[in-house]
Design a protein around this nucleic acid. Sequence first.
DNA 1: TAGATTGTTAATCGATTAACAATC
DNA 2: TAGATTGTTAATCGATTAACAATC
Lengths: 218, 218
Amino acid sequence: MPRYDGVSRSVIKRLPRYYRFLGELLHKDVTRISSRELAQLMQLTASQIRQDLNCFGGFGQQGYGYNVAALHREIGNILGLENATPIILVGAGNLGRTLARHMKFEYDGFRLIGIFDSDPALVGQGVRGLSISGMENLADFCEEKKPRAAILCIPRESAQKTVELLIQNGIRCFWNFTHFDINLSFEDVIVENVHLGDSLMTLCYHINAADGESVSGA
Amino acid sequence: MPRYDGVSRSVIKRLPRYYRFLGELLHKDVTRISSRELAQLMQLTASQIRQDLNCFGGFGQQGYGYNVAALHREIGNILGLENATPIILVGAGNLGRTLARHMKFEYDGFRLIGIFDSDPALVGQGVRGLSISGMENLADFCEEKKPRAAILCIPRESAQKTVELLIQNGIRCFWNFTHFDINLSFEDVIVENVHLGDSLMTLCYHINAADGESVSGA
DNA sequence: TAGATTGTTAATCGATTAACAATC
DNA sequence: TAGATTGTTAATCGATTAACAATC
């Protein structure tokens, strides 16, 4: 397994976007692309692209550019997409069920292997070929199936307790849709937060800032 | 309406998080807080907090700190949350309907006033007190109700065409859940992207990077 | 070979942190 | 008043951009 020390968070955050654009080029049967062309397409600088890619190794060829298929594959490997990390969904309310149905987990490097909820009304219901289990089955399930990560779609109030339980059962990686700050309460966890509310508020700011501008000229 | 020129994107992205933490403090009846205490709570530096807040004005008092209620209100104003910007949902599939049901739009500065979908099977269905309309009603609706923004939950293939239509009808602000890069195709648009797939891939990277580390020591 | 384009080093730019005088 | 903590300027750090020698 490759390891890339000291690659900055900013670079890593850009990798999925590279992967997406290269996938599209591949789909359009483009075989080679220069950093200059790709930069134009993605609205980045060619420098940044070369700098980013060279964090992981020299994937290009002088005078030629980059082979689209090879680069696409490389970035997929860097992201670890082929590993199909086993993940469970915790909280099968509206949002949870929608994510289970909507996400292409296989494409994004995961395999959804279990769904849990504390609400008896939901237990037994089928989602994407999986049956929702009660929380009391979590320990046994983890013992047997060893999920590596969890999607958190639970109410904020039960977050602390639920994360504690998950950590006890060997899960330290979280795709977190709650407003609970996991890394403030637990150490050595890997957390990717999706704060939909924050995102919407940011949009709100930009809309209102734009209004302010037009009023005062600029 | 206040206008803050040249406030950096990094600062703006942090505002919703400040707002959240201050809301919680308020809820716990904390009346005053120093930048040092807030920094500890949020795992930031006190310097950064003071620097961030002073982009918008001096909300603190030397020797005392910040009044929680006042600061909370100020940040809400900066974000423009009280404006209740009228927004419509375009694409009422699984994800769209869940967002309509799940988001606290009022809390985040918006008011959901319409839902549209091209699928006749969905038209007429009720979501959160709104009835899903066909796309053919969009023009009239916009004329009358003047929505300012749109939530995009449509398939990638129809994104270009749909955004074009929305722009024709006076909507230039988007909360975008598709993989279509709006700002690469249209100018003077305000876009907030939510790339759930990218987020999941980033989590994938960190999980696999952690595995690599434990193998080789460090 | 000549032209193109990379990989990489150096320069610039912006964001974060530290320091401290102002002041409540 | 003395102590605390801000607002703000200066110093540091990191990320982006530019430049260019290496090389396909």
